[in-house]
């Protein structure tokens, strides 16, 4: 009888004590994780800052102009000018080619209809 009473008192106590310790450990773990995530977040956002600045820097107009000039033989791009408006009709649309969707690059690509057509 006495043992049963003791058990009745102590088992819940031990159980609760265990549960409380467990929860507090879990909380501590979570706080630690949150802290490390925050550090990571800070580092990542710092990296992101640098990358976006770099992106803007690489895309600054004078650099793009220099690149357009340098690769003129491939790109054939010229500055916008009031005399250089085109007509929609003058755009060379695809002719004799098959347009396929390339899943890897996510682009529409024109391929010659037969392999012998290639230059």
């Amino acid at each position: 009888m006495r043992v049963k009473h003791l058990l009745l008192v102590f088992l819940p106590v031990v159980g609760l004590a265990y549960w409380v310790t467990h929860e507090s450990n879990k909380t501590r773990q979570s706080i630690k994780q949150v802290k490390s995530l925050e550090t990571q977040l800070r580092d990542d956002s710092q990296r992101l800052e640098f990358l976006s600045v770099e992106w803007e820097y690489l895309n600054r107009p004078d650099r793009l102009e220099a690149l357009v000039e340098r690769y003129f033989d491939q790109l054939r791009l010229v500055e916008a000018h009031v005399t250089r408006y085109g007509e929609v009709e003058s755009i060379p649309f695809y002719d004799g080619e098959e347009v396929i969707y390339d899943q890897e690059s996510g682009l529409l690509m024109a391929v010659p209809l037969s392999p012998t057509d290639t230059k």
Binding site: E79, A80, H81, V82, T83, R84, Y85
Partner: peptide
Amino acid sequence: IIEKVAPLLGLDP
């Protein structure tokens, strides 16, 4: 300057 910026300003040619 006007010749070059007019297309950028969206003036209808």
